[in-house]
Write a protein that binds this DNA or RNA. Structure first.
Lengths: 125, 125
DNA sequence: AAGACATATGAAAAGTCGTTCATATTCGGC
DNA sequence: GCCGAATATGAACGACTTTTCATATGTCTT
């Protein structure tokens, strides 16, 4: 069966340009991945589920900070939580987020190979 | 900003976990894409080259802000600049960055389809 | 050489974000 | 019902970012 999109005004490709709304959405999604602490949380959760306490151990941050950041990630749809006894078990929503991180890593490596010098522009002396 | 230590930089996959250094790198790359203004700059430059003045027109920001942000993007390796007469022409370094934005968009849509309600967790009343 | 134009730059202001501290909530066991 | 363990929450503080304003630099034209 074919896909049927009704009333879809979200650009599915950035190549087409982003309206202000899509830009805001993308910005907050990427912002959610734009700090080392949250990246650690996410990679710690890759392929397994962890309780908050286990996450705290895994990443070495304060319990409160972890809780705050996990809530953040929850609201961005990167992780989900489920109560189990007196623990709360977190897991990645899906592995899509890992792909995004991989792309960023790949960009970094691509840069390292292609740009020996940072000053590849016409403005610095 | 930092020197590359000889070490496991081969980690082309976040699934293997990120050391503190890689996390910092990824974080700054994604941070570079994590604001609407920079996303507009980048998508404006997709598939074509623009002078600073043209970018200013395209995105409707102040000339100074555009210049600051373009420098930012330059340092992150997303765009390159070349002098042409009294203009300076900017272009995307490559289309990799568009892929990252697309992935973020795709995550957003995936979420919209799978998560009718935000409260898919065990913590909110 | 002077003036107009295009772009960059530095500092200050305004806003945003992450962490910490202290405290509240929710659950299980006794 | 109460106590201890696990997690969440709110407010406050510091750090960082984005924008703006004013000014500097470089370039073309005449």
């Amino acid at each position: 069966m074919g896909h049927q999109r009704s009333g879809n005004h979200d650009a599915t490709s950035a190549g087409e340009g982003l309206d202000a709304d899509a830009a805001k959405t993308v910005a907050s999604i990427l912002q959610g991945l734009a700090t080392p602490s949250r990246l650690h949380l996410i990679t710690a959760l890759h392929g397994r589920t962890l309780t908050v306490g286990e996450v705290v151990e895994a990443v070495g941050m304060e319990q409160s900070a972890v809780s705050h950041q996990l809530r953040n990630l929850r609201h961005l749809g990167f992780v989900t939580a489920e109560r189990q006894g007196r623990n709360i078990v977190y897991r990645l929503f899906d592995d899509h987020v890992i792909d995004i991180i991989d792309q960023a890593l790949s960009h970094a490596e691509h840069l390292r190979l292609a740009a020996p010098r940072v000053g590849d522009d016409a403005t610095e002396p």
